[in-house]
Nucleic acid binder design. Sequence first.
DNA 1: AGTTTGTCACCTAGGTGGCAAAGT
DNA 2: ACTTTGCCACCTAGGTGACAAACT
Lengths: 278, 278
Amino acid sequence: MPASSPAAFLPASLGVLAPPEPHPLPETSSSWERPRATLFPSGPCTSSAEPVAQPMGQGPKNPCVSGVTVQLEMKPLWEEFNQLGTEMIVTKAGRKMFPTFQVKILGMDSLADYALLMDFIPLDDKRYRYAFHSSAWLVAGKADPATPGRVHFHPDSPAKGAQWMRQIVSFDKLKLTNNLLDDNGHIILNSMHRYQPRFHVVFVDPRKDSARYAQENFKSFVFAETQFTAVTAYQNHRITQLKIASNPFAKGFRESDLDSWPVAPRHLLSIPARSRSS
Amino acid sequence: MPASSPAAFLPASLGVLAPPEPHPLPETSSSWERPRATLFPSGPCTSSAEPVAQPMGQGPKNPCVSGVTVQLEMKPLWEEFNQLGTEMIVTKAGRKMFPTFQVKILGMDSLADYALLMDFIPLDDKRYRYAFHSSAWLVAGKADPATPGRVHFHPDSPAKGAQWMRQIVSFDKLKLTNNLLDDNGHIILNSMHRYQPRFHVVFVDPRKDSARYAQENFKSFVFAETQFTAVTAYQNHRITQLKIASNPFAKGFRESDLDSWPVAPRHLLSIPARSRSS
DNA sequence: AGTTTGTCACCTAGGTGGCAAAGT
DNA sequence: ACTTTGCCACCTAGGTGACAAACT
């Protein structure tokens, strides 16, 4: 199943997932849009306890989800970023997150079906800008109109609990975009705004009237250390350096430790022109 | 779900898939081994009719599978290879097939669950060798002991009929190996032997005693134009040339049409030595 | 002035057949 | 004599931040 495709196997189980919105969502109608119902309890995002994440305060749960616990992978790396103020690039085509959101899951019913998904909620209703001279984020006004509230289903959804618990679950297909008209099912965010990723475990209820139990059949998890500011270009140079140091795909930008070679900027060392075909 | 992992969702539904074996399988016990039961009708592989594949002669079927039909994609390419005598490389690490086995599926129940899988049966009990002077395959004796009869589940299995029918189903994760001790769930074949790929559609029966209906819940398809000889190195030079001409990953071996440049063998034109790190 | 976009060099990751060497 | 193996150059495919130009 492709990521973020309409979840035919989840009959309206997710209407309950709509987050507290600082202001109303714009009206759109893509198939990735999140339903508007706001039955979910509002309030600030709970920080996770150690070493296992704490679910958000929620009502009575189906035994298939009530015992589920989740551990964030690469937690030390996330904390290192969070300490500097994590930034995530958003592009028109969609950009992967780094670090990738990955979790280890415990306590599922091995034989039951679950869908796993993520969404992103605004951490506040502010717009920010970065003051380079003071190396600090400043409030730059009220938030821009909220983006369409999409969700990203893990592409392996639905699958048995045994399958999800077998190994680390990685949301490495998830991409972030600032394109409000995005057609690829990517998560749409406002640049220069702060967000909190959320992780949801949904029990796929085999009962005919499963929609009635939607509220009881899912459990949500929030890791405060994964919050970030969406940007179109990195603002904090220390974030850039940590990305380069820790992301294998950015290895090309690493200096060979103390060696000051190459001396000239890389673009002056290589062939400058390239024929523009088609 | 990873390719070829044990199909927990298919309670013994596949014991019926064991093919007619020219001689007994060696006793092994990998989790990818195919059960030995040979309830399946024996006989030569049926050639497919046009334009939709013909299933193998089988007994009464569950309505969920009885109406399923399958079209082979890239049929002209398969036929071009088959005319020359298709060869598929097998390696210790596992090699993808080219062309890739891809099908378009019709007639599933949109709301029912299906698993799709492939296996490979010996076309005869012979071993072959290639006579370069006459450019022909010759019988070189009786077949080597049969390899463990593994199956390859399409990694998206199980999924709804609607999902499978939405677009072309591609078995591009399937790999062939000649390593009898393979640990990666790849399909094990004997080099210099001829094989016939088979494609199976299995309805995932929700009934508790689904094992009793296994025989009725699947439908198998054979495309004669996809048969091939397993090899560790290409024998027929025309097969090599057709692979190079049609596989994008072999583009590096294409000559620029009539241009005779480069004049020297490529390994003489490039830097000969390479530092062997670690 | 601040933010966004498009292009680029430079990586990771992995699929090709060629080829020399090893194996049988 | 025939077959297999391991390594290699050369691709495809796509994920990085840098940077100049464009946008607002």
